[in-house]
Design a protein around this nucleic acid. Sequence first.
DNA 1: GCACCATGTAAGCAGTTGCTTACGCAGAGG
DNA 2: CCTCTGCGTAAGCAACTGCTTACATGGTGC
Lengths: 131, 131
Amino acid sequence: MPIATDPLSRIFFALADPTRRAMLERLAAGPQTVGELAAPFAVSRPAISQHLGVLEEAGLIERTRQGQWRSCALRPEGLDDAEAWVAEHRAAWQSRFDRLDEALAGLTGGADGTRRTTRGGAADRPDASEA
Amino acid sequence: MPIATDPLSRIFFALADPTRRAMLERLAAGPQTVGELAAPFAVSRPAISQHLGVLEEAGLIERTRQGQWRSCALRPEGLDDAEAWVAEHRAAWQSRFDRLDEALAGLTGGADGTRRTTRGGAADRPDASEA
DNA sequence: GCACCATGTAAGCAGTTGCTTACGCAGAGG
DNA sequence: CCTCTGCGTAAGCAACTGCTTACATGGTGC
């Protein structure tokens, strides 16, 4: 992941870490200071700061000064792009396989409802001729 | 991201790369060989192989031998965990802010529909007392 | 002004990624 | 048997991550 990638990559990258996801889940209960947020994790404060930087650059949280403390709050719309991508593609893939299942059921006359049973044998010379 | 993390992290990590997402999108049109899959990308075949390895370890695709060729196909259920996590948390965050908006609207009597306008001033000493 | 608190930043290190080129291995076909 | 094709693996390199330990910055309170 090059340093500056597209927004979607930044979001997925931010989510691809258990610590960062746990921080997001804790923030779901309400805004917290960095210290409160760091408490349950067995890493140093700078590490937390860096994780927060990743989350902030991904647009998933925002940090605001509050006097001596720094409040971290979720930015719910930050997940919009990720959810849109995942939902869209999962639906598309699913419908594709559903259609394939129908086609297979129609061809073989079988009532097999299981998905992806013998798909590998669709062609002895893969030419994408099945789409 | 340590080498072996949890499934969710692997999925998000696999999605956190434009090339890998593009490969998934191309595969949505139907199974393809590695060569076909590599064609539109300006990287070498080994690089494609490695990307496919990441996608396969994340459970997003599966590779099957087909004689001389190797067919790559989507594994739609591979996105299930990711979609569940994103949808669940986005919904939770959103509802949280909706409730907060209601509370703010009720307190100030304003009909302001905009979200997160002056949240930073909720407390001069952040104690998570607003939830 | 000065100590003290909560955080961010800088520097440095081990481990990982992502790309490359070179090579190995299996199947197709003469 | 030999060659060609398709693809994976190995080795090597630049860049990045994630963590650490100092240190700097800015607000609180005496």
